[in-house]
Amino acid sequence: MSITKEDVERMSILARLELSEDEQSLFAEQLSEISRIIDSLAEVDTEDMDEMIFPSELGNVFREDTVLPSADPEEALSNAPDREDRFFKVPRILEVD
């Protein structure tokens, strides 16, 4: 496959990752190169194979719903870029008319 600059731009929007024009061009070129190995997966006969998510046989693990102490709000907020009272503060998230 060949990955175009437009593909990279589309992915960067999905991933909320701002990229410069130069980065978009460079990544398109490098990822097209990398895709040469990735495309080889199509040659493998995997007909009877399941999709293996985790390399362990534990499967889903359940536990009792026990109440335990969670992080202290002050600690949880200690690395916040911005805060107000006991909340993380962010720029606006809604359009206001």
């Binding site: 909320r16 690395n79 916040a80 870029p81 911005d82 993380f88």
Partner: peptide, 20 residues
């Protein structure tokens, strides 16, 4: 995402742009 910890870019006035 620049909300709970780590780097936050300045110069954006909405959250989506801030994250990207």
């Amino acid at each position: 995402d620049g909300v709970r910890y780590g780097y936050r870019a300045t110069g954006s006035d909405d959250s989506m742009t801030m994250m990207a």
